[in-house]
Write a protein that binds this DNA or RNA. Structure first.
Lengths: 126, 126
DNA sequence: CCTTGCCTTGACGCCGGTGGCAAGCCCTAC
DNA sequence: GTAGGGCTTGCCACCGGCGTCAAGGCAAGG
């Protein structure tokens, strides 16, 4: 399978696949003419990556899941490393929700004509 | 008041103040030597900006609040334009919380060994 | 031979709010 | 005179996940 086909089947772009490879997440052998050739199994890997990204993981966080899949596991989340990341992310999300709830309260109060206080940074769901 | 003093009193940097000015949020007259000279009132403006940024507003969103303050209002949130922005932001935050709650559920499920589905993008609390 | 369409690498752009550096002016004190 | 501090403008760096363009090689069909 060449890169264009994989991109289409995974619902993404060739640029994206090359980017993943550059970051060590996706693998390909090269044919004689230098083209990337993918195993069918890579499709699952790419889908795992996309699903995790959508949930808010960074590429670095995703690495253990991919490794877990490559190790032959039916899903990428059964390995200890993956679980660690999952727990961390869960904690982050919880913290984020708490913060947003606070902000929500502030906005609500301000709409009722109060004054905004402080709140800090970094909450994502890319 | 010169820029260094304002920066210190507002708890930020001179770089930041110049940036705000560049984006039309903070005003200063110039002394003979070209230095920025600030009214005392600008301190309140800068604090309003910082507070709103901390809550997650973008600079563009903050403009109406500043205008409201400049119009002589005791707080920046009493003007119609400000309220519009507040409502929009509240809605955004609500949506964000919903999304994160969904993600939380997915993470939880995955920790219980299920499979991740999909979720989309953009949730900030800068 | 030429076109078309796949593939390759390389590199810049984006977004937003700064940090930080450079080169240079202004003012004060010693 | 000179050292030191504050001020000026201008521009590059950052973060992350790509989009997108550039310039070129390779394969196949008319």
């Amino acid at each position: 399978m060449l890169i264009g086909e994989l991109a289409e089947r995974a619902g993404t772009s060739t640029r994206t696949l090359r980017y993943y490879e550059e970051h060590g997440l996706v693998r390909a052998r090269r044919s004689a003419n230098g083209y990337r050739v993918y195993e069918d199994a890579e499709l699952r890997v790419v889908r795992e990556i996309r699903a995790l990204l959508a949930v808010g993981f960074a590429l670095d966080d995703i690495r253990p899941f991919v490794a877990c899949l490559r190790a032959g596991n039916p899903s990428g989340d059964v390995c200890p490393d993956s679980v660690v990341v999952l727990r961390r992310k869960l904690a982050e999300v919880d913290a984020c929700i708490d913060r947003l709830s606070t902000v929500r309260g502030q906005l609500h109060a301000q709409l009722g004509h109060a004054i905004v206080s402080r709140e800090d940074a970094s909450c994502r769901t890319t």
